[in-house]
Design a protein around this nucleic acid. Structure first.
Length: 503
RNA sequence: GGCAGGGUAGCUCAGCUGGUUAGAGCACAGCACUCAUAAUGCUGGGGUCGCGGGUUCGAGUCCCGCCCCUGCUACCA
């Protein structure tokens, strides 16, 4: 069975991971875990983009070889993502031989199938000798390089191989407009891509003459592959392309990327694949950005440090929750410690954590920790089943914020039910049947919540799952969410799932 | 400049094809309860719905103008 194949963008190995990177990896992980909950086999790819001029220069500046440099960066990223519970099962680095093989194979195939679409041409641009790279219009400050304002930019020509991107415009445009086989989401991003496509496309140069740190261009001694014709292909090379079995994984079901690189994924990438006659990915999801106290998150020192600090503050699961629940995975959102603390305390500590405490404490106190039979397995009015359905619909639509909201709303419903039902009063009155029913309904709701929070907070979900006496079954059972069944289970009141902040 | 989206309670946002006193969460105040992480529940205060015109019996919701914010406007990723 073909796995459900999801990828994240590969990050440029030029600095440390920061909150902006984390939002994307965590969002993709939530989606991957959601699909695993459904019982689908999932293939989840993450990785690093390790070629290019800047990496080369940064390594040089650090007095290291480029390979040593990217080795260090790659390890740092992996450590970070594992620490944030990202459950990727392949880590692709563009400096790996398997990747270079895929890149060269795809280029060779494009040349074979469409010989006219790879042609030698002249790239002309303004070259900065200080940076040793071409500068674009938008990068100029007063007509000069921002980094080397004292130097003149030199108009320079370079013989490169070009890809006839313009020839693919109509086909890509039709695909994006049809929005079925190849979907660009959310709609805002699709509209942007459509407008770019309608304006028309220019051919792009895809080889570089002066860049030693890259994949050798097929049949060329001196040129390397342009970074996007390198980086994008990682999604494909990770399947083993062109070796046996690659098409048992490809095409990707979802590429998760940042809004800033949608054009590469939604225009160049499909054109490349069409040229090579390789199936297209089914969907591109372009998320927004994390703002840091209202400002853009960049790669500067202070903000990269903030990721570690944020994860340490209330633990990685709480950071995952905040990024999905408050920042969101569609539009830009803001991150501040004030807001993080407030959401942590109200939704997690006082909300979900306290709900688990009070329910499990009552089962312990009134029923010796054994979940009684009785009740309907839901809150009155079936609100749990409704919340679950809304949650599933939101997840399916990649509305991660909306799915998280269903969790908090169910917690609120459960807390309200406790006040109304007043189990302590039932105990005092000796109304055993009714007390059994109330406790059973509440425990069932906790089971449901454990499954619902699993994609967002896998570690906390497991802790709650164990507290519910389910240690020998995996939490990844959607069936338990639909029809919770833990009658007779021996529960324990857990250590506080989400300890309150020190006063 | 062009294209797109947005400006609604202190904060983050819902408000579909116009219709009773504009909603939610957080924060704030009061009350209730005791199973619980001094947690929870209930009630309440709080908004010229960016500005100015217009259409209409009636506009946050439609039209015109203006102000402000954000994104995109391609070979840096």
């Amino acid at each position: 069975m073909k796995p459900w194949y999801i990828t994240t963008a590969i990050d440029y190995a030029n600095g440390d991971p920061h909150l902006g990177h984390a939002l994307e990896k965590i969002g993709a992980d939530v989606i991957a875990r959601w699909h695993r909950l459904q019982g689908e086999p999932v293939r989840f790819l993450m990785g690093m983009d390790e070629h290019g001029q800047k990496v080369f220069q940064t390594a040089q500046a650090a007095g290291m070889s480029p390979q040593d440099w990217v080795d260090g960066i790659s390890e740092r990223f992996e450590t970070t993502w594992r620490g944030l519970h990202c459950s990727y099962d392949d880590w692709m680095r563009t400096t790996e031989p398997r990747h270079a093989a895929g890149v060269q194979a795809l280029l060779t195939r494009i040349r074979e199938r469409c010989p006219d679409d790879l042609f030698v041409g002249e790239y002309e641009g303004l070259y900065c000798v200080g940076c040793e790279e071409f500068k674009q219009e938008g990068q100029l400050l007063n007509g000069r390089c921002g980094e080397h304002p004292s130097r003149e930019l030199v108009p320079t020509k370079e013989r490169n191989t070009f890809f006839r991107l313009s020839a693919y415009r109509d086909r890509v445009l039709a695909l994006v407009e049809a929005n079925s086989a190849f979907q660009v989401e959310p709609q805002i991003r699709r509209n942007e891509i459509l407008s770019v496509l309608r304006e028309g496309l220019q051919d792009i140069s895809i080889s570089r003459a002066r860049l030693p740190w890259g994949i050798p261009f097929p049949d060329s001694d001196e040129q390397t592959v342009y970074v996007w014709f390198d980086a994008l292909i990682n999604y494909l090379s990770a399947t083993g392309y062109p070796g046996d079995g690659w098409d048992a994984v490809w095409p990707a079901d979802l590429h998760v990327v940042g809004k800033g690189i949608t054009r590469f994924h939604c225009i160049i990438w499909p054109a490349m694949l069409i040229a090579a006659d390789v199936p297209l990915p089914k969907q591109i999801w372009a998320h927004g950005y994390v703002q840091w106290g209202g400002a853009k998150v960049s790669k500067s020192e202070g903000e990269s440090a903030s990721l570690d600090e944020s994860a340490a503050r209330h633990g990685p699961d709480a950071l995952r929750w905040f990024l999905m629940r408050e920042v969101g995975f569609e539009n830009d959102g803001d991150f501040t410690f004030e807001r993080f603390d407030a959401v942590y305390e109200s939704e997690l500590a006082n909300g979900l954590g306290n709900l688990a405490s009070r329910v499990l404490a009552m089962v312990g106190k009134y029923r010796d920790g054994v979940v009684p039979a009785g009740g309907e397995g839901d809150l009155p009015g079936g609100v749990g089943a409704v919340a679950l359905a809304s949650y599933a619909a939101a997840m399916t639509a990649t509305d991660l914020k909306g799915a998280a909201r269903q969790i908090t709303e169910l917690v609120t419903e459960a807390n309200g039910y406790i006040t109304t039902a007043a189990p302590w009063a039932l105990a005092k009155a000796g109304d055993d049947a009714q007390l059994d029913a109330v406790l059973a309904n509440l425990t069932a709701t906790l089971v449901r919540l454990a499954v619902m929070i699993y994609p967002f907070m896998p570690e906390k979900a497991t802790a709650l799952w164990v507290a519910l006496g389910q240690a020998d079954t995996p939490v990844t059972g959607w069936g338990q969410a639909k029809r919770p069944d833990v009658v007779g289970a021996q529960v324990v009141k857990p250590e506080n799932l989400f300890p309150r902040l020190a006063p």
